[in-house]
Design a binder for these strands. Structure first.
Length: 307
DNA sequence: TCCTATGTTGTATG
DNA sequence: ACATACAACATAGG
């Protein structure tokens, strides 16, 4: 589910726990969402840590914590006067929600449900990470700015997201249809399937157009509508998971026989770049002159299964 | 049974 | 090394 605005929505939900300590941690060991991480270390270090802040960057989330430094002679009764302040250890939790991930807040008595893989118990609530399909990912780091976070690309709504920046990225992906280019998180962090369709519809560009064939004016529109759709999504979706208004393609794109809200023409759907794509044939002219020839394309149904 | 799903990534190929 | 295409990941629902 989550793209930029849905991710932002979930970030705000967990914000309810900011300022409070984590008393206990539940982590469903061995689940794919913890790939590359030790749940034992995560549970040990997050226990006792205080949630301090949250950040979103595209579809990536980062929650930062601090915990009192673990004293080397913790059991020594006389060694109680290590410096209390200034000896706090930074911790961060990276969260990617994949296709079906979500963050919720539950009562502190919450028992983890089938797909709840991480639960941070605070005194008055439980912060829950859930993900049925397990495409999401949890990362743990003993710093407030892990390397992967520092390396994230230019945000769509930042000042660095210039026409030139976009043009350069499209040039690198010149031979690829524009649709999968918009889904590439290194160029358009936070954009997902529905936002990409919305952007192309507003920019009046067919999703199958090769990125390298876009005219300068079209690149300008891509950049402009990308920002427009991100702002609008944040406005309509982030506060309470609402839908954008009926003037948006979003509302019509999944309905069979759904009509373009601008022209009333019936919308078209096809797989482009491996993802179902919806567009308005009236507003987004097909780049392929000989449309009828497409039927002649051989179906690679029984292609060679290795061996 | 077969198809779909608001995502990423490893692998093969050019 | 770089760009491109696609199967695989895992589960639920129509």
């Amino acid at each position: 589910m989550p793209e930029l605005a849905e991710v932002e929505h979930f970030r705000r939900r967990w914000n309810e726990g900011i300022g409070d300590r984590v008393l206990r941690v539940f982590a469903r060991k061995g689940k794919r969402v913890f790939r590359g991480e030790s749940t034992a270390i995560l549970v040990r270090d997050l226990g006792g840590a205080r949630l301090e802040a949250s950040h979103a960057h595209g579809k990536q989330l980062l929650f930062t914590f601090t915990r009192p430094t673990r004293s080397v002679r913790e059991q020594g009764p006389g060694s109680r006067r290590r410096q209390q302040s200034g000896s706090e250890q930074p911790i961060s939790l990276g969260v990617h929600l994949g296709m079906t991930g979500a963050l919720r807040v539950e009562p502190p008595t919450h028992r983890p449900k089938k797909h709840d893989h991480l639960v941070l118990y605070q005194e008055t609530r439980a912060l829950v990470f859930t993900d049925p399909r397990l495409f999401g990912r949890i990362r743990f780091s003993a710093t407030h700015e892990p390397a992967w976070w520092a390396d994230l690309p230019t945000q769509v709504l930042s000042s660095g997201f210039t026409v030139q920046h976009v043009a350069r990225f499209l040039e690198r992906r010149a031979r690829s249809p524009i649709k999968p280019v918009l889904l590439d998180q290194r160029g358009f962090p936070g954009i997902g399937n529905w936002m990409a369709d919305e952007i192309l519809w507003r920019a009046r560009i067919h999703p199958r157009r090769l990125a390298g064939t876009l005219l300068p004016a079209e690149v300008v529109r891509i950049r402009q509508e990308t920002r427009f759709v991100c702002r609008g999504a944040l406005r309509f979706v982030a506060p309470s998971f609402g839908d954008p208004p009926g003037s948006w393609l979003f509302v019509h794109r999944w309905k069979d026989g759904g009509r373009c809200p601008a022209t009333g023409v019936v919308l078209v759907r096809a797989t482009i770049g491996g993802r179902t794509t919806c567009w308005s044939p009236a507003l987004q002219p097909d780049p392929d002159q000989r449309t009828t020839k497409r039927a002649a394309r051989a179906k690679p149904a029984q292609s060679i299964r290795a061996q």
